[in-house]
Design a protein around this nucleic acid. Structure first.
Lengths: 183, 183
DNA sequence: GACCCTAGAGAACGAGCGTTCTCAACGCAA
DNA sequence: TTGCGTTGAGAACGCTCGTTCTCTAGGGTC
């Protein structure tokens, strides 16, 4: 096992455990056991837990945003595609809300590096929504962001595609109104 | 100091600390120091930390919901009043998102009693929104809930009244559309 | 005053945390 | 074969946590 493979295995274990059970609730020993990476190499690759936490969030951000961006890019109705993608995400059996908001709630006064990743993630999401709304509707991005976040939060407590569908309908209504307004 | 006063002081300290720094990040000793209640009485009133956590959430739920309900009850435009109330809440200097969602993110796999309070809180909020939407618009309650939650989450990362205003505008648009639909 | 129940202050306990250290096993150049 | 740097397994450390225990000091009641 080299450092790269160790890194991947550690991040896989960290993501599964941190997302499912919370960051503070999962100790380094659990991650060592689950990943099979020796403690010595763990601390060689990630010198402290904080580094592992930020790396977990960064990798998840990259994958999540790329996934969503891919689903939106090839769609005729980009805004609709966002909420379809959300509906599928909310239906995954291990869905437990937004990893970044969970981390923020837990570590709100914690290390600044973690909060930076959360903020960056949300800024990217807003940017993506502004593009999906299309030119001339950039002002809708903030309202779409509210709908996306709201649907995610509601789905965290009541899993399934319904919150995404309802938010999608609201988004379509707002879009139609904005379209009428600028016509 | 009798048990009642101890209880109040403990809940005051617990609410301030848990909400500001997270539940796991605050130890019982901090609460003892901040409240001035001796450890022995603390454990007499709340036999374990879990009891203190649930009591904190229950009391906050009662106060929060009553406050919002009061603001909505006397308003000519109940839905608008909800988002005005939110704008004021988001502008409080120590605002740090929804205490119940923060607790859920942190203790997602934790004690069931805590999750019950979170669920109950959100069910009450949805009920309140259904009443605010008025008879004939109960179906809007779920969309309003998404807007309220979304605004709260966005404001947690970017404090100030703006998210509430934007969500309020979106709500008004949805209401107007629904009004047109049933006319 | 003698007794007893209660309360306060804080030490103590066992467990778990993040992190570091020990030590034996191994790979491999000379 | 000898020596040496690196690795893995896990014990150990120092700390903090939630919780309990100890000891002392009142405060009534006879």
């Amino acid at each position: 096992m080299d450092d790269d493979e160790a890194r991947t295995r550690l991040l896989d274990a960290a993501e599964a455990l941190f997302y499912a059970e919370g960051i503070q609730a999962v100790g380094m020993d659990r991650i060592r056991t689950e990943s099979g990476v020796p403690l010595k190499r763990l601390y060689k690759v990630f010198p402290a837990k904080e580094a592992l936490v930020t790396a977990y969030l960064v990798r998840r951000d990259l994958r999540w945003t790329a996934d969503l961006r891919g689903a939106v890019a090839e769609a005729a109705d980009p805004v609709g595609a966002v909420f379809e993608w959300l509906a599928a995400w909310f239906s995954e059996p291990d869905f437990r809300g937004c990893a970044f908001l969970n981390a923020y709630g837990e570590l709100g006064t914690g290390p600044a590096a973690v909060l930076d990743v959360v903020r960056r993630h949300k800024a990217e999401l807003r940017e993506l929504l502004a593009e999906a709304a299309g030119p001339g509707h950039e002002g809708l991005a903030d309202q779409l962001l509210i709908l996306v976040e709201g649907a995610t939060v509601v789905a965290a407590l009541d899993p399934g595609p319904d919150p995404a569908r309802r938010a999608g309908k609201a988004a379509a209504a707002l879009l139609a109104r904005a379209g009428a307004g600028t016509r």
